[in-house]
């Protein structure tokens, strides 16, 4: 089921911080969009997605997922229906890959056969052979494989919304490309709504159906990669584009368009 996310005048200032992490943010993500949230560190992009699953509570403003105000929802139940992937992955080191992936289905009390089938399906989806990997422990996997498991775990209960916080930031370039391509494939196959935080402009432009550029807690521009490249809205966006320029040509290719 596709899922829309809406921010209405959301502000968050952490205690002792000089300026708000989110400064009156209003925006709407349509169902099925793959939105990349781009900005330098400390720009509020992580805070923004953490407000969606209530790991951070905003000071003011409203966030709606599928039209429902998240502040009215039970946090645990809300999170069980929103996939969440973080840069450090956070796999449970004492559980096998299969048990890790089964976490949310187990919380939701699915029956055993259904969980087993789902785990196999998901491992196959992220290109890990279930027979080979389901019984392994996280410490026996490479960084790229661990994040594949992290992605499978986040997708386990088939959430219609996926929040990803620099998920590929610590992964080497070759594996990162592969994971990006797989994520695009998964998005195209499922039409899930994805909010994907990154500080890598090339990644943001490659993955996003729309890119949300943030700086100092404010939205600088929220538009398609093409529009952002051709009509940067602010000096900040222009400087970001310049910083990524030498790789831009290879990263950003509009479908059906040659370079």
């Amino acid at each position: 089921m596709p899922c829309e996310v809406e921010f209405e005048d959301v502000t968050k200032r952490f205690p002792g911080a000089a300026r708000p992490a989110l400064d009156h943010v209003s925006l709407k993500v349509e169902a099925g969009e793959f939105v990349t949230v781009l900005g330098t560190s400390g720009c509020g992009k992580t805070t923004m997605i953490k407000c969606v699953n209530r790991l951070v509570e905003p000071d003011s403003g409203t966030i709606r997922v599928e039209g429902e105000d998240v502040s009215a929802a039970d946090p645990a139940r809300l999170r069980q229906h929103i996939g969440y992937v973080i840069q450090k992955v956070g796999l449970f080191p004492h559980m096998t890959v299969g048990e890790n992936v089964a976490t949310v289905p187990r919380v939701l009390k699915w029956d055993k056969e259904r969980i087993q089938a789902r785990v196999d399906e998901l491992l196959a989806l992220v290109n890990l052979d279930p027979k080979e990997f389901a019984g392994r422990y996280p410490s026996q996997l490479s960084g790229g494989q661990q994040q594949r498991v992290g992605l499978a775990r986040a997708l386990a209960a088939d959430p219609s919304l996926l929040l990803m916080d620099e998920p590929f930031g610590a992964i080497d370039a070759i594996n990162r490309e592969a994971l990006q391509d797989e994520l695009l494939r998964i998005h195209q196959g499922s039409r899930k709504t994805i909010l994907f935080v990154t500080h890598d402009i090339n990644e943001a432009l490659k993955l996003g159906t729309r890119v949300l550029v943030m700086d100092a807690g404010r939205v600088q521009q929220f538009d398609t990669p093409k529009e952002i490249c051709e009509h940067p809205a602010t000096d900040f966006v222009r400087s970001l584009l310049r910083s990524g320029e030498f790789r831009l040509r290879s990263a950003y290719v509009e479908p059906g368009e040659g370079i």
């Binding site: 139940r77 069980q80 929103i82 973080i86 450090k88 956070g90 449970f92």
Partner: peptide, 11 residues
């Protein structure tokens, strides 16, 4: 990171 993941999954 493990605790954040657990919390983020709604455990």
């Amino acid at each position: 990171d493990v605790l954040e993941a657990a919390e983020g999954m709604g455990m």
